[in-house]
Design a protein around this nucleic acid. Structure first.
Lengths: 241, 241
DNA sequence: GCTAGTGCACTGGTCTGACCAGTAGGCTAC
DNA sequence: GTAGCCTACTGGTCAGACCAGTGCACTAGC
């Protein structure tokens, strides 16, 4: 005791240093989406590492959704605009290996969508209201599950954007697609669509009236109604108050 | 028109095939956490690809938090239990490059924690209540920011676990740590701790009484009070009702 | 007999150098 | 002036090598 306080040395792999540097450049905005990284052979000179190391670093960056590389592209890897793809991926594996139940996922959606409606009711612009109107109209006019679903997604996305919270918007989107994936094989009865449209219209009216709590409650109720056939009884009632 | 419907061929990199196979094995539970992958040299035989390809695949799997490899380990890469590390990473980059404001993050926390309290009030076990009691006691006894903060985290984690929703639990945890990272440099006044403890006790009482909506409101209020000094005025009021 | 120490076989990390298929853009032949 | 080719690159993959670590079996010493 009393000697100098040595700290354990963390060995850092070379490719990790490369990842770090590129990542920081992107986060600091020195590399903007659409810009190109130097070619792998150029990078190995700049970082003075071998191409294997450069490539492993690029694989990590690609897995994190920061860059993309195409074979033969003479411009080098492209810096991507942020997409929730990485978020989506990690939530999906979470859902699979951590054995998230459908009930938990739908609960989560109810929470997020409820919040989105609550905020949207107070913060919406008239342009966003128009988008929602238009999406509902497309739901009513839809002639198949595909187009109905697309309009539905657009509607929810408009609400989420109107909430003004990008995190809520992105997470809602991710969780929704995961949930839809999980029940994709089960057929949805077309008559459900009519009820779904009615639900959307009610909630939209509440948003238009600026009644956030009502809109949120209706949204949660709609989700609960829609998913209850796939869930054990009473799995969602705690969030309906 | 009328000819055979050809689909565009997506060229799939070799390392992606390797990633896929390992990923599926993990998701199907054929590879359980703690088990070992064969060594890289063994994998290159099994997949009949070169070691570079195997290594690029391993880098991707590692970036996704599925495996970890240590130099010199004679057992090969280790399959990891799921950790939200990848989720954390992608949300952090989301926060940075997508320019999420602190207000948005705190809003998100309010939504998640509110839901956690709401559910916890109805679903808690007595053991979980005891944990919360014990965490509050440790907050009161804390002699520095470190120990106070650790007890605080434990309290919130107990609530989140009591909600019965792992997704809420994990996301709360991730967002909380991101938020705390963002304001880490700003000093928090010790007198805030007393108010914070009082808030926790109020909310805990509501949880114990089974009053979910009250607990949720108190939790949101507490967050709002705590973070309002760092935020523009009125940034959170929409969620307080 | 048992333990402490040594050596070995193997690991992952990195490097070098090579080949291939694909792309973009300049150049040439019409 | 344009259509088509050519070339100089790119990323993807492979092969083979070296190094610093690690765990385990074996051995020398007690």
């Amino acid at each position: 005791m009393g000697g100098p306080q040595f700290e354990p040395v963390r060995t850092v792999r070379a490719y990790e240093r490369v990842v770090e540097q590129v990542e920081h450049a992107v986060e600091r905005g020195e590399l903007r989406p659409g810009e190109r990284l130097p070619s792998e052979r150029e990078l190995m000179v700049q970082f003075s590492v071998s191409r294997s190391t450069v490539r492993e670093a690029l694989r990590v960056l690609q897995a994190r959704g920061l860059v993309r590389s195409r074979p033969g592209d003479p411009n080098g890897a492209e810096v991507l605009p942020f997409t929730p793809a990485a978020l989506h991926k990690s939530m999906t594996t979470l859902a699979r290996v951590e054995e998230l139940s459908l009930a938990e996922l739908v609960q989560f959606r109810m929470v997020l969508e409820g919040a989105a409606y609550l905020l949207a009711a107070r913060l919406h612009t008239s342009a966003q209201l128009a988008e929602m109107d238009e999406a509902v109209a497309r739901m009513r006019a839809a002639d198949g599950y595909e187009s109905f679903s697309a309009a539905d997604v657009d509607f929810h996305d408009a609400v989420a954007r109107a909430s003004g919270n990008k995190l809520i918007q992105i997470c809602s989107d991710v969780v929704r697609s995961i949930v839809l994936d999980l029940i994709a094989d089960k057929i949805r009865a077309p008559e459900q669509r009519l009820r779904s449209i009615a639900h959307h219209e009610e909630a939209l009216a509440a948003v238009r009236a600026g009644d956030g709590p009502l809109a949120a409650r209706l949204a949660r109720q709609a989700l609960s109604d829609f998913y209850s056939p796939y869930l054990p009884a009473g799995a969602l009632e705690e969030l309906l108050e």
